Simulated scan of single mutants.
Amino acid sequence: MIVMYVDAVTQKKLPNPRTSSYDTLAEARKDPLIMAKLHFFMAVSRTFTTFLTKYQTDEPVMPFISKDLVILMKSLLKRFIKAELLNDITALQMVKLDTTAKEARANLKDVDIGLGEEVVLKELQSSPNSSVGELSVLEFRKDYMDCLTNIVKKMQDKSPLKYTIVRQMACLDPRNMFSDPNLCYERMKGVVQRFLHDHQLSGGVSAGGEHPGAGCGGKVQTIEPEEGVRRGPASSLTNPLERRSREESRGGRHASRGVSPYRQR
């Protein structure tokens, strides 16, 4: 309908609205590669939609964001970055990757522009009246790569993966706990050390063991037993109410035998 409307205005069958919105549509109508470009924008928007929908929530999803961010960024990078650079890349390396470097970029003919764009370009090239040739396709691939570079650069600048605490919080992901418990243990120690260093951990830690944050300059506090609480093995700690209940139960047994539980010695 939009194409028919622009054609009707061009043929002066309808009056020209003379607005910026119409001027944009008219320029797009003249672009022979507009359908391929629209397919590109739709593909990128679909890539981000799942992530944005999942994390626009009040639920505690912090342990999962680092892994999902890595998957999201890697899905964009593999379209125009050489595969050997992405095989064993870490989250921090991915954030620091220079996507403008020529040695990191794939050849223009190897850039993954997507199935929709490939189909549209082949149809345009095979059309007898089309002005789209091999040079136009290469220019489209270069613009495609430059656009992805700008998108990834913005993600790298704003990505929370730059912060160590975000990457360490992945230790609370049950999948990571099951697959690599030792790594999760080390990451959890790092989280505790960070909280202690920033004075964000209140209440201290259990007494009787060396604290993992003792070496980062934070003051390690221990929880002393409250007054009236007997200190002993972990399974035998009792509070005053439990002790009184036991004394009353013993007093009941002595009374049944005719012996006063409070007799003078």
Rank of each mutant, 00 (worst) to 15 (best):
E248K: 13
V111K: 01
R265C: 05
G114P: 00
S159R: 00
L196K: 15
D68G: 04
G213W: 04
E134M: 06
K142H: 12
Q11S: 10
V44Q: 11
M177S: 08
S236H: 13
E117I: 10
S256K: 12
V70F: 14
V166H: 06
F64K: 07
L92H: 05
V152Y: 06
P15L: 10
K109P: 00
Q11R: 14
V119L: 08
F40I: 00
T164W: 05
V61R: 11
P174N: 11
E59W: 01
S126K: 11
H254N: 06
L77F: 01
L25P: 00
H39V: 06
D173M: 07
M62T: 11
G218I: 04
F40N: 01
F51N: 06
H211S: 15
F80N: 03
K30P: 02
T99G: 04
G133I: 06
M42W: 07
L38H: 08
A170S: 15
V61Y: 09
L108W: 00
R29D: 02
S256V: 01
E210D: 11
V205E: 08
H254G: 01
D112I: 08
I34S: 03
G217R: 06
M177E: 12
A36T: 03
D88T: 02
Q56D: 13
L138K: 12
G116T: 03
S20H: 10
P17S: 08
S126C: 00
A43T: 13
R175F: 12
Q168E: 15
G116E: 11
R263V: 05
E117C: 14
D68C: 05
L237Y: 09
D173Y: 04
T222Y: 15
K82S: 06
T164I: 09
L196T: 09
V9Q: 06
G228L: 11
Y55H: 08
N87Q: 12
I34W: 03
I223K: 14
F178A: 14
A101R: 09
L97P: 01
E84H: 12
R18T: 07
D23W: 03
F40M: 09
A170W: 03
T50H: 13
A83F: 05
V70I: 07
S245I: 12
K74P: 02
M145N: 00
A36R: 02
R194W: 15
I2F: 06
F80K: 03
L161T: 04
E117G: 05
F178T: 11
D173N: 15
K12L: 09
L172S: 08
T90C: 00
D23K: 12
D7N: 12
L241H: 13
E59A: 14
A101T: 06
A8T: 00
E123Y: 02
S202L: 13
D68E: 14
D180P: 01
S256T: 02
L25E: 05
I81K: 08
K102H: 12
E186Q: 15
A234F: 10
S245F: 10
S66C: 11
P63R: 07
D23Q: 10
P63E: 07
P15S: 12
N129I: 10
A43G: 10
Y144C: 05
G208W: 04
D146C: 04
S136P: 02
E123C: 07
S235M: 14
S206L: 11
V152Q: 00
G114I: 06
